[in-house]
Design a protein around this nucleic acid. Sequence first.
DNA 1: TGAATAGTGTCTATGAGACATTATTAG
DNA 2: CTAATAATGTCTCATAGACACTATTCA
Lengths: 256, 256
Amino acid sequence: MDEQHANSHYSPSRFRTPDGAPTDIVVFTITSEVKKGVKKSLPNRTLRVMLIRRKQWPFEGQWALPGGFTRETETVQACARRELLEETGVSDVHLEYFNVYSSLGRDPRGWMISHAFFALVQEGYLAGRTTSDEASEVHLFPVDEALSMALAFDHRIILQDALDQIRRKMLTTAIAKEFLPEQFTISELYQVIRTVVPTFEERNFIRKITSTRSRKGILEEVLDRNGQPLMSNRYSQRPAQLYRFTDYAPELSIYG
Amino acid sequence: MDEQHANSHYSPSRFRTPDGAPTDIVVFTITSEVKKGVKKSLPNRTLRVMLIRRKQWPFEGQWALPGGFTRETETVQACARRELLEETGVSDVHLEYFNVYSSLGRDPRGWMISHAFFALVQEGYLAGRTTSDEASEVHLFPVDEALSMALAFDHRIILQDALDQIRRKMLTTAIAKEFLPEQFTISELYQVIRTVVPTFEERNFIRKITSTRSRKGILEEVLDRNGQPLMSNRYSQRPAQLYRFTDYAPELSIYG
DNA sequence: TGAATAGTGTCTATGAGACATTATTAG
DNA sequence: CTAATAATGTCTCATAGACACTATTCA
């Protein structure tokens, strides 16, 4: 294990080294329920986070974020991607590093420096793994509910930080697309934003987002083969124009 | 060293653990030189980064970012703050974590997961420590120059990432204040922004930044004891109004 | 026809952007 | 007076924000 430390100039090996570099992954998803008894209407959407009930010490029986220990053969990003695949079965989703947690005593097993990621996953991708069975070892909790629970380790803090991050990014980047199909209506987009950031409110949302000049084209209209506007009536009587995100990322500034 | 691992349920201890958790600190500063032969005029400003010449293996003799190994008695943030104080003598400056670096083989000494911070320091705070003596072991390089050098480890990548970060933050937050005195003129602010983000250009900068209604007060005018506007003629014949940053942080959004 | 969502008309005040012009002071 | 920076005048057009109104389709 110490073959790489042969060089006598290497002083840090005289000190204690970390007992592990785990990753913690905050998996967010938005679930949709159709309003019952109503005709075609927009679904009720809920921002949820995936938690796993721990089976062993420490924090046995408590809910915790999924994650695991980084191996010497992988980067922390690769570890997060591997753990996400192992625990949820999903790959090719938005997975982003956001902070490190190293407070003393955060893990009774020893000196653990944890790297926290958030993942944004479509509800459909998690099919089967997260039944509504409350006795399950894996469950999707509404974020508000999860924040009020006694989670393992410092996972409540990590969850809160992750939530702050995706709220900021929801308004300043196009990550809303991670919760939407490739083609969507303006109302769907608005609903997704509001589900993550309840304080967001724009009366004339459709005006602003579709006024090409100012937004410079964050969205573009979807056209069919004949160049005609493509509409959807999935959530409404009257068909609505479908849009998709472009690659354009506007630069934000407080100065102009 | 293993007394905390007594519990038999602790499986990760069977695996190899990291050989260290170093921090790397990208210390940015803006140096000013008065234009010679001119009367009162704005100084030439340069964004610089602090590098240290390594004295031992690995990368002996090459320039590297300051930093050091995290101890078991401190968080990585505390480590960064301690190293910054030890290597530059400064405390109470803006120090911010921005990324983790764990690619395989990035450090020939072993499995090192490095935590990267950037610090924003006023030129005056570094007095004495960074003489213009090229033979010194510590030197402030213009950022462009540093990026073209063969730095130790993956420090060129870390430096580039840090630069991207502060460019983004310069435009979306009030970190410009870290490079300015508490009271400053609009021209000084504009110069600082342009030094960090050369592509930034606003013809009517003073109009936008001082139109209270739109900016909702990022800046406020400094008044003297009699409630009269306080002016400065440090850089100009005609005295200019002094401003300071308020606590207001506008929320940015691509949607409205 | 009513419910539900989609989308437009219209008005005002404000802001962005461009450029010319004036103001203040040192030397 | 000139150099150098500070600041305002003025014009046009776009956008924000508010709110009323019309449009489309299903059941």
